[in-house]
């Protein structure tokens, strides 16, 4: 017997619309961008911690637009770090290996930390390069 033959279909309730919780985030982002410019301090908003409906997120995403850079990270599932039309504002989505969204952030930074290579990892890379060179 396949699961398809079980006659239970969850019908999601009518998509809740805009709650009005998204617009204030733009003001918060503005503050964060100003702080980045003045002090260089990066910051982030945890979107999964806020009462935002899918419609709110779409609205926010639409307002912020799409920028020039999109980074894809394959680490225990896919993560995307996409710059928005406002440089320095990044839309970050983490997926697990099953493809479900595990967390979602808006990061304000020149480059998100996750993108930078850690010095210790660079060291390991240089050891590998030395190995390649010694084999020449």
């Amino acid at each position: 017997m396949s699961f398809d033959s079980i006659p239970i279909h969850v019908v999601p309730p009518g998509e809740p619309g805009l709650t009005g919780n998204a617009p204030p985030l733009l003001r918060e982002l503005l503050e964060m961008v100003r702080r980045l410019l003045e002090t260089g301090e990066p910051s982030a908003i945890d979107l999964s911690a806020l009462p935002l409906t899918p419609a709110d997120l779409d609205w926010l995403r639409d307002k912020l637009g799409t920028g020039e850079i999109g980074v894809t990270l394959q680490a225990n599932g896919e993560s995307t770090l996409n710059e928005t039309a406002c440089p320095g504002v990044w839309w970050v989505t983490h997926h697990n290996e099953q493809g479900a969204v595990t967390s979602q952030f808006i990061e304000v930074a020149f480059v998100p930390d996750l993108v930078k290579a850690h010095p210790r990892d660079v060291e390991i890379g240089s050891e590998y390069l030395e190995l390649l060179v010694s084999d020449l």
């Binding site: 910051s43 982030a44 908003i45 945890d46 999964s48 911690a49 990270l73 680490a75 225990n76 993560s79 983490h94 595990t102 967390s103 952030f105 990061e107 930390d113 996750l114 850690h118 210790r120 990892d121």
Partner: peptide
């Protein structure tokens, strides 16, 4: 990898309702 771990910690912090930083 370090990035996998960093990503994991970001999600864990989010689940624990800690600030994103």
């Amino acid at each position: 990898t370090r990035r996998t771990f960093l990503k994991y910690c970001a999600t864990l912090a989010s689940m624990m309702a800690l600030p994103p930083t």
